[in-house]
Amino acid sequence: MGTVANPAPLGLAGFGMTTILLNVCNAGFLPLNSSVLAMGLAFGGFAQFCAGMLEYPKGNTFGFTAFASYGAFWIALVMLIFLPKFGLIAPASPAGMAVFLGLWGVFTAFMFVGTLKANRVLQFIFGSLIVLFALLAVAEATGNTAITRFAGFEGLFCGAAALYLAMAEVLEAQFGHAVLPVGAPAPTPMVTTSMRVAA
């Protein structure tokens, strides 16, 4: 059997590029537009969800859960915008959006614990994503646009880190060695134990 491709760069790129695009709007550089929704549905949503499914046969529980979940998040976010426009359901209230974003922040906090054995860039992605969800939830709850703007700038760093890690993994696969530093954790020392067998 040949080498199996690593789906993580696809998921990271989908997450990173969509996060950057959305937060360009949150930061006030552009209004929310169809480019964000299209990217969120196709790349951040569908492609990232597919990356999660491809992690499943590899036995990567963390990758499967993360990519499938955040892919579903982007699809849900697009649906939150589209469904009211078709008259299928009332728009989410600010309180509803605050709870929605807050729950994703809690989920991300649990997932962050799983990154503590991974590289530093992945830790930064999840750590900054917790902050991003918290800021956006507070902005929705209070209606404070200044917080949304600040969250946009913070989200740009989060998305850029994810895109950086995606490219680092692609280049490593292409060249057969690390090209971009990601702050790999120190290897766990081998622990030897001896077991005395009674005669």
Results as ranks from 00 to 15, higher is better:
81 I>W: 06
121 V>H: 05
94 P>I: 14
104 W>F: 15
9 P>S: 06
98 A>K: 05
193 T>S: 14
66 A>E: 00
139 A>W: 01
167 M>A: 09
10 L>F: 01
99 V>D: 09
178 A>D: 08
36 V>E: 07
20 I>W: 11
60 N>Q: 06
196 R>Q: 15
49 F>H: 00
60 N>R: 07
64 F>V: 01
84 P>V: 04
25 C>Y: 00
10 L>Q: 00
76 A>T: 13
42 A>N: 03
106 V>L: 15
100 F>L: 13
71 G>E: 06
59 G>M: 08
68 A>Q: 02
138 V>K: 02
116 L>G: 05
94 P>E: 12
83 L>S: 02
104 W>G: 11
168 A>F: 11
58 K>C: 00
41 L>N: 00
184 A>I: 08
125 I>K: 10
193 T>I: 14
123 Q>D: 06
175 F>T: 13
184 A>Q: 14
62 F>K: 09
38 A>L: 15
141 A>W: 14
13 A>F: 09
188 T>D: 12
97 M>V: 13
1 M>A: 12
120 R>K: 15
24 V>C: 11
183 G>Q: 11
143 G>M: 06
96 G>K: 12
94 P>N: 13
54 L>D: 04
69 S>W: 03
196 R>W: 13
44 G>D: 03
69 S>E: 08
149 R>M: 09
120 R>N: 10
65 T>G: 09
184 A>N: 14
58 K>R: 12
159 G>D: 10
46 F>K: 00
123 Q>C: 12
130 I>L: 05
129 L>Q: 12
172 E>H: 09
103 L>F: 15
183 G>W: 11
73 F>S: 05
87 G>H: 05
50 C>Q: 00
147 I>W: 02
65 T>H: 03
139 A>E: 03
77 L>Y: 10
156 L>I: 14
42 A>Y: 06
87 G>A: 10
27 A>K: 03
182 V>A: 07
96 G>F: 11
31 P>S: 13
151 A>S: 13
160 A>G: 14
76 A>S: 15
156 L>R: 07
121 V>E: 03
64 F>R: 04
36 V>Q: 13
103 L>C: 15
117 K>G: 13
108 T>H: 10
103 L>H: 12
122 L>P: 01
8 A>K: 01
55 E>G: 01
62 F>V: 09
122 L>K: 07
10 L>M: 08
1 M>Y: 10
30 L>C: 07
146 A>F: 05
47 A>C: 08
186 A>M: 08
155 G>T: 03
45 G>E: 07
84 P>G: 06
21 L>Y: 11
34 S>H: 13
194 S>E: 15
185 P>C: 04
70 Y>D: 05
134 A>Q: 01
84 P>Q: 01
12 L>A: 01
53 M>A: 05
121 V>R: 08
26 N>S: 05
185 P>R: 06
119 N>T: 03
59 G>A: 02
129 L>T: 15
115 T>H: 06
99 V>S: 07
165 L>Q: 04
20 I>G: 11
77 L>T: 13
180 L>E: 07
117 K>P: 04
87 G>P: 04
148 T>F: 04
171 L>N: 06
37 L>H: 03
126 F>G: 07
43 F>L: 11
198 A>F: 10
1 M>K: 08
39 M>C: 15
80 L>G: 06
